[in-house]
C-alpha cells in the first residue's frame, strides 16, 4: 500500500506551509529495514492529521558520517546546501527519526546559519502521548511482552535524552527491562563515528555482538531502539546469534504504530 506523503515543494506550490518538517535521513530513505521505520512514523503522523511535509528529493545527507570520519569539507558542503533549501522554505520546526541527523541539525547547523527547533521522534511522540493524542486501540498487543530499550549514543549521552523513549514505551503496557549497561552507561551499537560505513578495526568481538549479548541476557521478546543505525546493528547481532525468531528488533515508532493498529507497513 502506498502512503501519501506531502513534500515541501508541493505544499509551497499550493501556498501552504507545514507545521513541521519531517527529516527522513539517508537510512530512513534508502535502507530497506529503516524504510519501515519511516513508514511507521508517517502513518502515525497521517493518523493524527499532523500538518507535516518531507523534503523528498531535495533532502541530502546532513553530513554527519563525513564530519565524524574527519571530513569537515564534505560535511560543510552538504550542510550549507541543506540549510539553503530549508531556509528558502522558511523551515522552523524539524522532527527526525535519526539521532545522528537530530544531533547535527540541533547542535552544529545553527553556527552555519541553520537555526531550527529540532526534535527527535522520541520527544515528538512523547509530547503527543502527554497531550493524550496517541491512544492504543489494542492494549493487549504487548501484554506480557518483555521489552528492553537500547540507548542510542547520539540521543543519550550526546544530548541527554534518556526518558522520552522510555516514556513512549511505557504506553505499550509491556514489561520494560533494562540491560546491564543503560542510560549514561549505555553501550554503543558500533555504528557511530562513521563506523557504519567501514569494516571494524581488528579486535576480539564486534561491538554490535557485545551489545546484542547484553540485550539477550535480559531475555527480551523485543529489543527497542530509536535509531535506524542501532536498529541495523542489533538486527544483525540478533541474527548472528540465530535468535531472530524469538527476539524482534523494533523502532519505538513501529511499536506505537502496531499498538495503534496501523500495521501493514
Amino acid at each position: 500500500m502506498d502512503i501519501k506523503v506531502p513534500t515541501m515543494a508541493e505544499m509551497a506550490a499550493n501556498g501552504q506551509k507545514p507545521d513541521v518538517l519531517f527529516w527522513v535521513g539517508c537510512s530512513g530513505s534508502f535502507d530497506q529495514r529503516a524504510q519501515r521505520i519511516t513508514r511507521a512514523f508517517v502513518k502515525i503522523l497521517n493518523h493524527l492529521n499532523i500538518k507535516y511535509a518531507v523534503l523528498g528529493t531535495e533532502e541530502s545527507c546532513t553530513g554527519d558520517p563525513a564530519k565524524r570520519a574527519g571530513n569537515e569539507f564534505v560535511y560543510q558542503m552538504l550542510a550549507m546546501q541543506n540549510i539553503e533549501v530549508m531556509n528558502n522554505y522558511g523551515v522552523q520546526e524539524i522532527v527526525t527519526t535519526c539521532p545522528h541527523c537530530f544531533n547535527i541539525l540541533k547542535n552544529e547547523y545553527p553556527a552555519l546559519g541553520g537555526k531550527y527547533r529540532v526534535r527527535h521522534h522520541a520527544q515528538f511522540l512523547q509530547e503527543l502521548i502527554d497531550q493524550g493524542k496517541i491512544k492504543l486501540t489494542d492494549a493487549t498487543t504487548f501484554k506480557g511482552k518483555r521489552i528492553t530499550y537500547h540507548d542510542s549514543c547520539y540521543l543519550g549521552r550526546a544530548n541527554e535524552i534518556y526518558e522520552a523513549p522510555r516514556k513512549v514505551l511505557e504506553l505499550l503496557d509491556a514489561e520494560l527491562v533494562e540491560m546491564k549497561s543503560c542510560k549514561t552507561k549505555g553501550l554503543c551499537c558500533g555504528a557511530g563515528g562513521a563506523q557504519m560505513f567501514k569494516e571494524e578495526e581488528h579486535g576480539k568481538l564486534r561491538i554490535n555482538e557485545a551489545r546484542t549479548l547484553e540485550a539477550l541476557e535480559v531475555s527480551p521478546d523485543i529489543v527497542a531502539s530509536a535509531c535506524p543505525f542501532c536498529n541495523t546493528m542489533l538486527t544483525d547481532g540478533v541474527k548472528g546469534k540465530d535468535m531472530q525468531v524469538s527476539v524482534k528488533v523494533f523502532d519505538i515508532a513501529e511499536l506505537i504504530a502496531q499498538g495503534q493498529g496501523l500495521d501493514g507497513f
Binding site: S29, Q35, T38, V74, M77, L78
Partner: peptide, 19 residues
Amino acid sequence: LENNGAPWQFSPQDRLNWE
C-alpha cells in the same frame, strides 16, 4: 556524499521511494 548526497550509491531521485 559528494555525488549523490547519501553515503550509499543511491540516486537522489529515489529518496522518496519508501512511500
